[in-house]
């Protein structure tokens, strides 16, 4: 399918764009990055604390402790989403709360809460993966590509 080319801008449109760009509030990119880094890092540090808690106090080694750690993080994220706290943290931290596993839990649970009035199957069941679906699709695809590169690298690269 051929992509449609955009028609050239008229003088009035160009003038308006210039005028709008002047009054457009600038996005504080650096500050957003810093916030995302700090909050995302704090979530990961908290995850490390939970993992250490399981290693020190239960019969888990580093590898097996990651399963209950993820379960705890997901549980807390879902709970905070239900109480409406996670949204506020996300407003402040931006991508910092989206990247870790808690972001995925938030995406699923918030969709479920939002569509609960439409019924359990048609509402919650259908819409739960609407936002989380692309994460699974692109995550699996990326994992496949990386694994393929790693295998080929090991096969030909030594």
């Amino acid at each position: 399918m051929k992509m449609k080319q955009k028609p050239p801008l008229t003088d009035a449109q160009r003038t308006y764009q210039k005028f709008a760009a002047k009054d457009e509030p600038q996005s504080p990119v650096l500050l957003n990055c810093l916030k995302a880094f700090l909050i995302g890092g704090s979530i990961c540090a908290f995850g490390q604390l939970v993992q250490d808690f399981f290693v020190y106090n239960f019969d888990f080694n580093e590898q097996t402790a990651s399963n209950p750690t993820i379960a705890v993080l997901i549980f807390i994220a879902v709970l905070l989403t239900g109480f409406g706290v996670y949204d506020k943290i996300a407003q402040f931290a931006g991508a910092g709360t989206a990247v870790p596993v808690t972001g995925f839990a938030n995406a699923m649970s918030s969709s479920a809460i939002e569509h609960r009035t439409e019924g359990l199957v048609q509402g919650v069941g259908t819409n739960m993966f609407k936002l989380a679906g692309p994460v699974i699709v692109f995550g699996t695809t990326a994992a496949f590509v990386v694994a393929l590169i790693k295998t080929l690298w090991g096969y030909w690269g030594g």
């Binding site: 908290f46 604390l49 939970v50 250490d52 808690f53 020190y56 106090n57």
Partner: peptide, 13 residues
Amino acid sequence: FLFLLVSCQAGDY
């Protein structure tokens, strides 16, 4: 909550 977790971590190691 964080401090509670950290303090529980000491264990008997």
